[in-house]
Design a binder for these strands. Structure first.
Lengths: 200, 200
DNA sequence: GCCGCTATCTTGACGCTGTAAAGATTTCAC
DNA sequence: GTGAAATCTTTACAGCGTCAAGATAGCGGC
């Protein structure tokens, strides 16, 4: 019981792993209050730490949201990968599966989705965030290439998936949102396929 | 020069037409600072009035943003109408033209677009705002009906237009955004048409 | 023509926010 | 063991939204 920190006992000073604790608290706050209601002091409070503690690890609120966004893009990719894993290995099917994962992510974590695609608060010139978001874009680009598509196809596929995700995440498109699960996916698949029609 | 108020001289009390002056100031503030940087006191300052003056006309910040959003939906419809007016009267061409107007709006007023489709700050249960946003949805629905489309088609067309608008408005889809004007429209038209493929 | 009423706007105050500066405490290098 | 650095707290300040109270203007009744 010297300087060693067991388990989760947060001693007065030197939390131990405050950086990731703050990130976790920030994610919960984001989910509960949304991007527009996000408060740095509230995050600190939730992590059981003084209001100025985050500054040392993230600089300011933008820094924290930037780190959160970078992390979010990898989760975003994970959501797509989850759908791809249980889909047909055919390139076109993989592309559609990625679109479904795109939509899953927007429905599961609407606030995080909005942070990634509809907010100015993160610093998108930050190297770590840029790397993460570029990775997401490259993934799409590779899938389109594998399916023999061009620039236009990439734009169309991205726009269609993004439009569905954003509208559904904001509670619109009720004619689709009201459908029970198996039927909803069928409709979404049919719509996603329109973005990249079979050649001819 | 009794109680009559000429022109734009804002006397001490009783501005004359403060409500619309505040709306105009709010729109400028929104365009400059974005939804996330929007400040009620800043709007009051810009309108040359005390920080609590907006309260009497709009209640609170949400009230002002709600009124701004309602107005925004009519401008949104106007942007679509402008494109429709100089397009072929054929229902499908009108549908595509509306999509182009959708995108025009997002590019011309990105902050207002975000207020309408990517913010929780307006009160979307407000009757005036609900009427305005419903009008926008009905317009789309009517166009799809005129072109002989069903629920799925409406969802697909809306999602495609929205996805393009949102991504372009956020500076993504650079392969499209970088195109000179005539070529860009051609690409957008080609993509929009994919959402509602010709029967057969 | 004057009086009171009401709508409109201002002033002042409160608790919240983010951020900066300075102080306290712990760990680490040597 | 001691100085230096890293980590966290405390304190302070300006800006924010909102509420309550006060000031000023226009308007109807007489």
């Amino acid at each position: 019981m010297t300087g060693c920190m067991d388990d989760e006992a947060k001693r007065g000073y030197h939390h131990g792993d405050l950086r990731s604790a703050l990130l976790a608290a920030a994610e919960e706050e984001l989910a509960e209050r949304g991007v527009e209601g996000f408060s740095l002091r509230q995050v600190a409070r939730r992590a059981g730490v003084s209001h100025a503690a985050p500054a040392h690890h993230f600089g300011d609120a933008q820094g924290l949201l930037t780190a959160l966004a970078a992390d979010g893009f990898y989760r975003f990719l994970a959501a797509q990968a989850a759908r791809e894993a249980r889909a047909d290995p055919d390139p076109r099917a993989q592309l559609v599966a990625a679109g479904l994962g795109y939509i899953d992510f927007a429905l599961d974590r609407p606030a995080l989705f909005r942070l990634l695609f509809g907010s100015d608060r993160p610093d998108f010139t930050d190297p770590a965030l840029d790397t993460a978001s570029t990775a997401a874009f490259f993934h799409l680009r590779e899938q389109v290439d594998a399916a023999g598509g061009a620039d236009v196809d990439a734009a169309a596929v991205w726009a269609m998936a993004h439009g569905l995700a954003d509208l559904l995440g904001n509670g619109r498109l009720k004619s689709v949102l009201g459908l029970p699960q198996p039927a909803r996916d069928e409709v979404l698949v049919a719509i996603l396929q329109r973005a990249f029609p079979a050649a001819g």
